[in-house]
Amino acid sequence: MVLLVCSAVAVATTLGILASVLFESFVFFREVPLLSFLFGTQWAPTGSPAAFGILPLLAGTILITVIALITATPLGLFSAIYLSEYATPTLRKSLKPVLELLAGIPTVVLGFFAALTVAPFIRQVGTGLGLDVASESALAAGLVMGMMIVPLISSLSDDIINAVPQSLRDGSLAMGATPSETVKRVVLPAALPGIASAIMLAISRAIGETMIVVMAAGLAANLSFNPLAAVSTITVQIATLLVGDQEFDSDKTLSAFALGLVLFFFTLALNIAALRLVRKYRQHYE
């Protein structure tokens, strides 16, 4: 009974949040047409006249997430392969916790690392090369966010690679395959569905991340895929729109709920896609 109540509370909370977001969004969409929200290319909630086009934010979110993934996927995956296939047990025992320590760093701390160290560094390098780099750039935020999700990818992938039965490795080695051929042709294909879902999980984590972007990528909602420009993301706008406000009745604050709704569908779609992917490969491999 207690257990039932506990799970009911969790489900009810989720439904409650969804209901409140839906309701407030509904109020917002009475003021601002849905189409101009989804396809508008201007985001200026405090301007006059105010503009509520989500495309610049969507572009910023996607840009930063892509940069983070390009950074984190090879780093995370390769370190997982090293840890599980090549590192000696003693080395693995000391390396893995260190890597996981990275996951424990609060994102605020990563955020000011991005803003105070990485962003100025990129700017210096950029100006040195004659490029026009904003003091806060999508690249800085994306890189640091990539560092943030490295432990997530490596730790999950490491577990998944370890779960590949030893008999498959033995079978491959006994065929006269080298250890690296074994990893590339047998172990990784067998672990692929799991690795894909780990990366999907990392993507939803990156999309939902706020602090690093607030501090390192700026607030300017530019519709741009230039990694050197300042961009803004959905989460950042939600945070800035609601911070300090007590009244939730203006278009400006209500738009935060609409953004929240979009974010919700985004991650939901991603999770469903991840599940689909895993199921498809399962059928293929087992």
Binding site: S167, L168, D170, S172, A174, P189, A190, Y285, E286
Partner: peptide, 9 residues
């Protein structure tokens, strides 16, 4: 081997 271990291919 003892247990059949075909590759996931």
């Amino acid at each position: 081997f003892q247990k059949p271990n075909p590759f996931p291919k």
